[in-house]
Amino acid sequence: MIIRSAINDQDMRDAYKIEKTVYIPEAAATLEAFFMRKELFGTYFLLAEIEEQIVGVTNGVRLHNVHLADDSIKQVAEFASDGTYFCILTIAVHPDYQRQGIASKLLKHVIQQAKRDQLKGIVLMCEEHLIEFYVKHGFHYVSPSSSTHGGIQWHEMSLNLK
């Protein structure tokens, strides 16, 4: 398996298929949001590839604010190109490849990139069943989020890098 940056439109379409497979329609980002995230924050738009097949994706945006209550965050309504925090909006692995460490490898690459960029930290919202996964990777539970994006109860997590 390799972790690499998305480089072309086919990569984006393949990554988006995984987003639509993993997230319910109400919670999935749009393809347009995916393209915007890649254009603005391409070093964080990463793909996991096995035998030339994209099996996982992660992406997000940089922010100044660590509070993630705004439901529009999934569609990249608020971001800061010089933000001091990275907000993970997607970590998704195709169901046929889950529980093989792919999400962990994608997350580790995001953390390494944020450290290279000397960011203060990483923030995200996740569903309750994923809290333990992020804690295992050094994140701290912040609180239940006031966001109900997609009709889901989200939970805010953070990782301080400084």
Rank of each mutant, 00 (worst) to 15 (best):
M1S: 14
M1N: 10
I2S: 09
I2D: 07
I7P: 01
Q10Y: 10
Q10W: 05
D11C: 15
E19N: 15
E19F: 14
K20W: 09
K20Y: 07
T21N: 15
T21K: 15
V22W: 05
I24E: 12
I24F: 12
P25Q: 09
E26H: 06
A27H: 07
A29S: 12
T30G: 06
E32R: 06
F34V: 04
F35W: 03
M36A: 07
M36K: 09
M36E: 02
R37Q: 09
R37F: 10
R37M: 11
K38W: 05
K38A: 09
K38M: 06
F41K: 00
F41G: 00
G42W: 05
G42L: 10
T43E: 14
T43V: 12
Y44W: 06
F45E: 00
E51G: 11
Q53G: 03
Q53P: 00
I54Q: 01
I54P: 00
I54C: 15
V55L: 13
G56P: 09
G56K: 05
T58V: 11
V61Y: 02
L63W: 01
H64V: 00
H67P: 00
H67N: 05
A69N: 06
D70I: 04
D70C: 09
D70H: 06
S72L: 06
I73F: 03
I73T: 01
K74D: 02
Q75C: 03
V76P: 00
A77M: 04
E78P: 00
S81E: 05
D82R: 04
D82A: 08
G83I: 01
F86T: 00
C87I: 01
C87W: 01
A92G: 05
V93N: 04
H94K: 06
P95V: 12
Y97H: 13
R99E: 10
Q100F: 05
G101T: 05
I102R: 06
A103W: 10
L107Y: 09
L107G: 11
K108M: 08
H109I: 02
H109P: 03
V110T: 06
I111L: 07
A114M: 05
K115N: 08
D117N: 12
K120N: 11
I122K: 01
V123T: 06
V123A: 11
V123R: 01
H129M: 12
H129Q: 14
H129L: 13
L130P: 03
I131V: 14
F133Q: 09
Y134G: 11
K136R: 15
K136G: 15
H137S: 13
G138W: 13
Y141V: 13
V142G: 08
S143C: 14
S145Q: 04
S145P: 07
S146T: 05
S147M: 10
S147F: 10
S147L: 08
S147V: 04
H149T: 07
Q153I: 15
W154A: 09
W154K: 07
H155V: 08
M157H: 07
M157N: 06
S158L: 06
S158C: 10
K162Q: 10
